[in-house]
């Protein structure tokens, strides 16, 4: 199952939380899936079903109770230990609330990963940072603002710029379009699609945004009942009869969004 063409392999992962009083809450029950390189995988599921937890496990912020996660054919630990690359070069992560460093301004936030891997030529950094800021649709004079002075949409954009600055092989996005207006959300889809054409990176994104699923994702994983009930291209998902899928994808709004989708 774990070949070199696989970017992320999730192998029989269980996640359980115990409250210390003997109550165990199972979040993931024996999840297995493999995401091929270059794939844009959307992860959908009801609120609180463990999508973000799965994402955190892929990054290595949380260790699953059982099972293994492989990145680029190696176990997570081995992959990150590999001295030729740093974690930052492996994956760019966009957190739900941006997770910008509040003490640094926008410019320094975006430049942070560059400085961390040892690039210290100021002119180079300036060009890379401003190019990314322009790419995500920010004005260059926004660069001197502190995160506290930004609007929600701008925080998302800066966080995305930071996640993209090293143009990593793997991009993990936690609800990238939540809180963006429809135009910004469409811009985001176009931006990611264009970058993907150029750089062929692998993307895993948690989203509730049907437009993103339709326009961007090559495959969609549905997390329900503590399991991945399907990991297929969207048309195949739409044909699936699971109650959650029916509820999520076959309500009137979803039908409008998916009307033009070729089956």
């Amino acid at each position: 199952m774990i070949g070199t063409a696989v970017a992320i392999g999730i192998d029989h992962v269980w996640t359980q939380f115990s409250d210390g009083l003997g109550n165990v809450k199972t979040v993931h029950q024996d999840i297995s899936m493999s995401i091929a390189k270059g794939e844009i995988a959307g992860l959908v599921g009801a609120s609180g079903c463990g999508k973000t937890t799965l994402l955190r496990e892929i990054i290595g912020l949380q260790v699953p109770s059982q099972g293994k996660i492989y990145l680029m054919g190696q176990t997570l630990g081995d992959y990150l230990k590999d001295s030729t690359k740093t974690a930052a070069q492996v994956c760019g992560v966009l957190f739900q609330r941006g997770a910008l460093f509040s003490a640094l301004d926008v410019f320094e936030n975006v430049a942070f990963p560059l400085r961390e891997i040892g690039i210290n030529e100021e002119r180079l950094i300036e060009h890379l940072v401003f190019m990314k800021l322009v790419t995500v649709g920010l004005n260059s004079h926004d660069a001197w603002l502190k995160p506290a002075e930004l609007s929600g949409g701008m925080i998302k954009r800066v966080a995305l710029a930071r996640a993209l600055i090293l143009e990593p092989g793997l991009l993990l996005l936690d609800e990238p379009t939540a809180g963006l207006d429809p135009i910004a959300s469409q811009d985001f889809v176009d931006l990611l699609a264009e970058l993907h054409r150029q750089l062929h990176f692998t993307v895993v994104l948690v989203t509730h945004d049907l437009d993103v699923l339709r326009d961007l994702c090559t495959k969609v994983a549905v997390l329900a009942d503590q399991k991945i009930i399907a990991f297929e291209p969207l048309p195949a998902i739409l044909a699936c009869g699971h109650p959650f899928v029916r509820e999520f994808f076959h309500n009137p709004r979803a039908k409008r969004v998916f009307r033009n989708l070729r089956r």
């Binding site: 180079l124 060009h127 890379l128 190019m131 990314k132 090293l166 143009e167 150029q198 750089l199 062929h200």
Partner: peptide
């Protein structure tokens, strides 16, 4: 085959 921003900038520079 692949050209990312950093390399492009290095070449351009």
């Amino acid at each position: 085959d692949l050209l990312d921003s950093y390399s492009a900038l290095m070449i351009w520079q």
